[in-house]
Design a protein around this nucleic acid. Structure first.
Lengths: 233, 233
DNA sequence: TAGCAAATGAACGAATTCGTACAAACCGGT
DNA sequence: ACCGGTTTGTACGAATTCGTTCATTTGCTA
């Protein structure tokens, strides 16, 4: 809709009372909280407007309609999360330690990104109807698989990772554990108790996540080196 | 205001008889589809009524209100699923094989219970607010953990399972993999492609699920017996 | 300073949608 | 056959809630 932006406008710091970008960001932050909490159908535009510094009129001015706002929030949530993930530098570490870090980091990161997880939950309820309209989402997420693939290759060449493991399946596994731990905390906790969701248990589960992944990926030999054979505890 | 009498209907015995249970079941089946597809806020009572053999009036007669219907559907979904799971007989198998079956079965079972998974997704969006009102839900699900605990004990006594593994964490792991495979199929597929969701790949993932669990639970020794040391493929 | 276009605010309209009032039909026992 | 309570159908009311209309304010330029 809006054509190019001309940088000559409002560059003087502090003088611009109008700040469309800040308003947009404000709306999206409020909207993310609302949608993450109540879903797309459950989220109320009036509620979002009330919690915003601006008014409902602006939501429609900037985002067109409710779905447009939801889409913008969804895409932004993915962008933020993947940017944070990209800060992990695995190339400096040897494969085994790098994999351990990747698993533990992903687990911890998901744990701290509850509203992102909830947006993904909601989008899956909608069968990905809105994500499928996004053109950028592939580019945003592809690097994640690339990093896993590079790491896997290094480990295989070093003879410590099993050749059967594929990047996609490995990513799938790490995601599953890290995601489920957040997405299903409520129902799981209600049925089996909240024992797993104390702070100390969560930290332990982060280690267990890495442990599960390592035991799955490592060759029998490499695993033997890591965990000397002792059947008892 | 159509006063006339219609004695022409209901001649066949059993067709037009009163059958409250069948009506209830009919409503709940339709409601499960509707809620699983569109969520609680997104689900429409009128839509459910239209697809039912009976009318909207009956929904309120039997279930009180929309939330009551949702609760009934949710509880019933859990009941059905757990009943099916209980049909697995693990006691006849040796621990390792039993664990493999448990993992593979759970994976396959979740895969075939999409609407149940979606109900759980929706309930987690609501932070378990409705499940927490259910009194029976604990009793329905507790046996699941009991079976896992018994199996773990047997394996530990036989010296093939690691002592560090707890029933809750093991159940958590198997659930995570099996659940995520269904719940996130759409977003994961849109981002990374549908390669994992062909029939053959899904069957393979079922085996991988068991493999992941076994490698996590088995002692180094037991694992070595199962997978003779060979670093290459 | 005046004027113009973009940005904003408040009130409103229209369409859904939940839930109910009322009335009619039905079944089983007496 | 009649009568009681139970089961069902229709129409409607009330409350939400999305999105818009219209007027106003604001920043920038001539």
């Amino acid at each position: 809709m809006d054509g190019g932006k001309d940088g000559t406008r409002g560059d003087v710091p502090g003088t611009r009372k109008r700040d469309p970008e800040a308003v947009r960001a404000d709306i999206m932050a409020v909207a993310e909280a609302e949608f993450a909490k109540n879903g797309l159908s459950g989220g109320r535009i009036d509620e979002i407007a009330a919690k915003t510094r601006t008014s409902k009129r602006m939501i429609y001015y900037y985002f067109g309609d409710k779905n447009g706002l939801y889409r913008a929030v969804l895409e932004e949530a993915y962008r933020k999360v993947r940017l944070e993930e990209a800060e992990l530098h695995l190339d400096d570490l040897e494969p085994i330690e790098a994999l351990r870090q990747l698993a533990a980091f992903t687990f911890e990161h998901h744990r701290r990104s509850e509203s992102f997880i909830r947006m993904v939950m909601i989008e899956n309820i909608h069968s990905g109807a809105f994500l499928s309209q996004s053109t950028s989402i592939g580019d945003v997420n592809r690097p994640a698989i690339g990093r896993v693939a590079a790491l896997l290759d290094r480990g295989k060449k070093a003879g410590v990772f099993r050749h059967e493991i594929t990047p996609l399946t490995l990513h799938w596994l790490i995601s599953a554990i890290s995601y489920f731990n957040v997405s299903n905390r409520h129902t799981f906790g209600l049925i089996f108790g909240d024992a797993l969701w104390t702070e100390t248990e969560q930290v332990r589960l982060g280690s267990e996540c890495a442990e599960i992944v390592l035991r799955y990926v490592l060759t029998t030999d490499a695993l033997g080196d890591l965990h000397p054979s002792c059947a008892d505890a």
